[in-house]
């Protein structure tokens, strides 16, 4: 389903729009659709992400469509759009705000992102220490490379992170 299909049946959701806008720093209403963002977008060529369309959809309040469509998860976060936007609309920041909203509302968040979150809650880091293979097929870990042991955060960290990740009641 393309963004055009989504828009033809879409309804404005003013409440969600103000939630999305509240989440970040961007001059959304300055956007005049110059498409400078889309012209340099890393994900445009292969995944048809068009940041200027995301911006106008948020302006139109079509938030439900955005957070359930999966399109907001096609951004590679190269941040060229935000760097180059002449109007400080910061499309990549807007996409982050939409991703946050999708998480809060338990909408369409790719499972891999949730897995990383639970790994951080468990271990403090995104993954466990890996064994690596050299070009000669020797296997090394940190100790064999004379690297110090990893020092990890404690329970207070975990509790605080969990508390912050729990959606706030309005």
């Amino acid at each position: 389903m393309t963004i055009v299909d989504l828009m033809s049946e879409a309804k404005m959701n003013v409440e969600l729009r103000s939630k999305a806008i509240k989440k970040g720093e961007y001059e959304l209403y300055n956007c005049f659709q110059c498409m400078r963002c889309t012209s340099g977008c890393t994900s445009m060529k292969l995944l048809e992400l068009k940041p200027h369309q995301i911006v106008i959809m948020v302006k139109l309040g079509l938030i439900d469509e955005l957070i359930t469509s999966g399109i907001i998860w096609t951004c590679a976060m190269c941040l060229k759009c935000t760097e180059r936007c002449p109007q400080d609309a910061s499309p990549s920041e807007l996409i982050i705000a939409l991703r946050n909203l999708a998480f809060d509302l338990e909408a369409n968040v790719p499972e891999v992102y949730l897995k990383v979150v639970s790994a951080i809650l468990d271990t403090g880091l995104i993954q466990e220490e890996q064994k690596v293979t050299s070009r000669d097929f020797e296997v090394y870990d940190r100790e064999q490379l004379n690297l110090p042991k990893i020092s990890r955060p404690g329970e207070v960290f975990k509790n605080n992170l969990l508390m912050l990740l729990t959606p706030e009641e309005d």
Binding site: K23, G24, I96, A97, R99, N100, F103, D104, V109, Y113, L114, V116, V117, I120, G124, L125, I126, S151, R152, P153, G154, F157, L161, L164, L165
Partner: peptide, 14 residues
Amino acid sequence: EVSCCGTPIKNVNQ
């Protein structure tokens, strides 16, 4: 006692 820097968490909660 350091943790992840926050980058992957930014996607779900800034």
